Simulated assay, not measured.
Amino acid sequence: MKIVVPVKRVLDYNVKPRVKADGSGVDLANVKMSMNPFDEIAVEEAVRLKEQGTASEVVVVSVGPAKASETLRSALAMGADRAIHVVSEDEVEPLAVAKILKGVVVDETPDLVILGKQAIDDDSNQVGQMLAALLGRPQGTFASKVEMDGASVLVTREVDGGLETVRLALPAIVTTDLRLNEPRYASLPNIMKAKSKPLAAKAPADYGVDITPRLKVLQVKEPAQRSAGIKIADVDALIGKLKELGVA
Rank of each mutant, 00 (worst) to 15 (best):
K50D: 04
V127N: 07
K216N: 11
G162V: 04
M130I: 14
G128R: 05
A203R: 11
K243L: 12
G208C: 05
A169Y: 07
L135E: 12
A205Y: 06
L199M: 14
M35T: 11
R167V: 14
E164H: 11
F142T: 14
L49C: 02
E57K: 14
V47G: 00
D111R: 09
K99G: 08
S152K: 13
K241L: 13
A233T: 11
T109Y: 11
S34Q: 06
L178Q: 12
P110M: 05
K231A: 14
V174I: 15
N181H: 04
E51L: 04
Y13P: 12
L134Q: 13
S144N: 14
A80E: 03
D160R: 08
V26G: 08
A203I: 09
A98K: 07
R167D: 14
L131W: 09
D160A: 11
Q219N: 14
V43F: 07
P223G: 02
V4C: 07
I239H: 02
R73T: 12
M148S: 08
P94M: 03
K241A: 14
E70T: 08
E244N: 12
I211F: 03
V235K: 00
P183Q: 06
A132W: 10
E93W: 01
L76H: 01
V10H: 07
G208Q: 06
V15M: 10
S124W: 13
M192P: 07
T165L: 11
K195G: 05
L49S: 01
K193H: 07
L238Y: 00
V166Q: 13
S152V: 01
V235P: 00
G23N: 09
R184P: 01
L245W: 08
L242C: 04
T212W: 07
E91N: 12
V5M: 08
G229T: 00
G79I: 00
V61S: 06
V155R: 09
R48H: 09
